Simulated scan of single mutants.
Amino acid sequence: MKKKTSFSTKGNSAAVGPLSIQRMLPNRYANKVGPFVFLDYVLPVVKETITQNGMGAHPHRGIATLTYILQGEVEHFDSAGNEAIIRSGGAQWMKAGTGIIHDENLNYDSQTGSKFIQGFQFWINLPAKNKAEKPAHIAVQANEIPKKELPNESGWLKVIAGNYEELSSKIPNYSRQFLYHIQLKAGTQFSVAIENETEVAAFLPMQNVRLNDTEFQVGEFIEFDKVAGEIEIKNTSLTTIDVLLFGGEEYTEAVVAEGPFVMNSQAEIATAYRDFYAGKYGKIKLTAQK
């Protein structure tokens, strides 16, 4: 049985310096999909200059950020002393836990020389018991992301987070969650089975795609019902298509979000701000800022 669509939307546009952002989650219909409470899509753009000093240091608490870069490279540095660079096709995960300050340089890929930048940032809401843990960071390069060739040479599936059949991501799971990047060649199709009571959404970054017999437009965010069933992805075009599919079990604890903090109560939000202004999240060291 094919899953039914709950809604579709194209999100809101914003600009961060030279970057054009499409904010897909939260949106007018939903504040979360499984543990995912935020999704920004960085549209493809040519970036001629190299950023050296970051895009603006800022705090987080109560979440893990997950950045997936399709084109370009992301340099990360934070107040816990973590530093890393991921390049085209790579991902990085940062658990803010009890509080952290981080910054990023988003530049073109210095290894390939391509000037294009394109990618995603998700926020994953941590269970209450994990919000009190220490910060952590993991960088996953493109060749470390599990990838599965699909039947009949129709395309591939990458597991950015979670599991798929025998594949498991290096990104930690605190609940049942998944983030897949699926690419299909022209004239092919592929179906993903989704368990009952699973929240799941698709995002179409670059092409129109037919999902469960309905044609959706590039830039659309589509959420499905929670009844067990299949999501059939069909490529009726003459070019390769890409689909991001993500979700997981419903986050049942209270969710209170304000600015860069996602907690379980307004009192915890107040504490998050108070601790930040008291300097308890530490500082990014000058050596990490280059």
Rank of each mutant, 00 (worst) to 15 (best):
L19C: 13
M1R: 09
E153V: 00
E166C: 07
N264D: 07
Q111E: 14
P172H: 04
N12H: 08
Q217Y: 00
K129T: 11
H181Y: 07
N208M: 10
M1P: 10
Q111K: 15
G155Q: 06
F36Y: 14
F276T: 05
E133Q: 14
R23C: 04
K283R: 08
A272Q: 05
S154H: 05
K95R: 11
L150N: 00
K129Y: 08
F7G: 06
R61T: 04
I145S: 05
Q189Y: 10
S79H: 07
Q111F: 15
I231L: 09
Q121A: 15
K10D: 10
F36D: 03
K283W: 09
E73R: 09
E249L: 10
R28S: 10
D213F: 01
S110H: 13
I284Y: 03
I124W: 02
N105H: 08
M55W: 10
A142H: 13
K47Y: 13
L211Q: 02
I284G: 01
T67N: 14
V218C: 13
N152G: 13
P172D: 01
E215K: 05
I69L: 13
S13W: 14
N208G: 04
G229C: 08
A272D: 02
N53D: 15
D78H: 01
M94A: 10
K47T: 15
E166Q: 11
G11T: 07
H137W: 13
F36L: 11
L66N: 01
D78V: 00
K147I: 14
T236M: 06
F261W: 02
T5F: 11
I171W: 04
V256T: 11
A96F: 07
K32M: 13
T214K: 05
V140L: 08
F224C: 03
Q121D: 09
K158Q: 14
P18L: 13
N27C: 12
S168K: 12
G89K: 05
T271D: 15
A201V: 02
S79I: 12
V256R: 09
R87E: 12
G56M: 06
P260N: 00
R28D: 06
K32Y: 08
G219I: 09
T214L: 11
N173H: 12
H102P: 02
A80D: 03
Q71Y: 12
L245F: 05
E104C: 07
K283N: 07
A228C: 03
E48C: 00
G259M: 04
K95I: 05
P35F: 00
A132R: 15
A64Q: 08
N235V: 06
G11M: 08
N125V: 02
I138Y: 11
T9G: 01
